[in-house]
């Protein structure tokens, strides 16, 4: 009798132990990677590109370091570096081959609705993304240079870029690129052109040999970055 009770208890504890272990394993199971082969390849390519970019950056910095170590007059090299950084940040006027996009409102006979005052920000964002995808180097909308931190938002029904109102028509978008013809075709065939037409806008694109982009006019405020010390 006593033995039987112990056997029953053993069976029951065995079942409980098994259930606890299964439950433990189920809740501790890490998130499964459900990416397909194609997605994995894509991710790998992105990472490789990133690596190549980082390597290039390291090379550049090493070269700069070498220059600084070699030359007696460090000031020139540093000034060059600062100028290059200013160029990267969009604080200098830039020129070169590119395209000019003119955004004009179109009214056909069946047009109903109010006056068109401004280009909606989502369209501009879409266009900028497509331009960047198709090989744009620098972009300026109206008189405002687009830099990394440029805000494009709508305030009281008017689109603001860098805090300036974009109400003038036609709105000119100047784009600097190495291959103006290609970018011209890309914009003409782009999805954003279609979306612009839904909102009664027409895009006119002209490739040009020399286009001049204004510098970023406002002061760049760095609020959340601090210089780190050499040894840290």
């Amino acid at each position: 009798m006593k033995n039987r009770i112990i056997v029953i208890f053993t069976i029951v504890t065995f079942i409980i132990g098994f259930m606890i272990a299964v439950q433990f394993q189920t809740t501790n199971e890490p998130e499964r990677d459900t990416r397909s082969l194609f997605e994995l390849r894509q991710a790998l390519t992105t990472e490789k590109e990133r690596q190549a970019e980082l390597n290039r950056e390291i090379d550049r910095q090493l070269e700069l370091l070498y220059q600084l170590q070699q030359t007696e007059d460090v000031e020139d090299v540093m000034l060059d570096a600062i100028e290059e950084l200013r160029e990267q940040a969009g604080l200098t006027e830039m020129g070169g081959p590119g395209i000019i996009i003119e955004v004009k409102p179109i009214f056909d006979e069946s047009y109903e609705g109010g006056a068109i005052r401004t280009v909606p920000p989502y369209l501009l964002r879409m266009l900028l993304n497509e331009l960047n995808m198709s090989g744009a180097i620098e972009v300026a909308v109206g008189n405002e240079r687009i830099i990394t931190t440029t805000p494009i938002r709508e305030v009281n029904g008017v689109t603001l870029i860098n805090g300036s109102r974009m109400t003038q028509f036609p709105l000119t978008i100047k784009v600097l690129t190495n291959a103006p013809e290609d970018l011209h075709h890309a914009v003409m065939a782009s999805q954003s052109r279609e979306f612009f037409s839904y909102e009664n806008f027409n895009l006119e694109v002209t490739p040009i040999n020399y286009v001049k982009l204004p510098p970023y006019g406002n002061t760049l405020r760095v609020r959340y970055m601090n210089p780190i010390k050499e040894d840290s």
Partner: peptide
């Protein structure tokens, strides 16, 4: 012992 065996088996 049964409990431990159950846990091991489950794991």
């Amino acid at each position: 012992l049964g409990l431990l065996i159950g846990i091991f088996l489950g794991l």
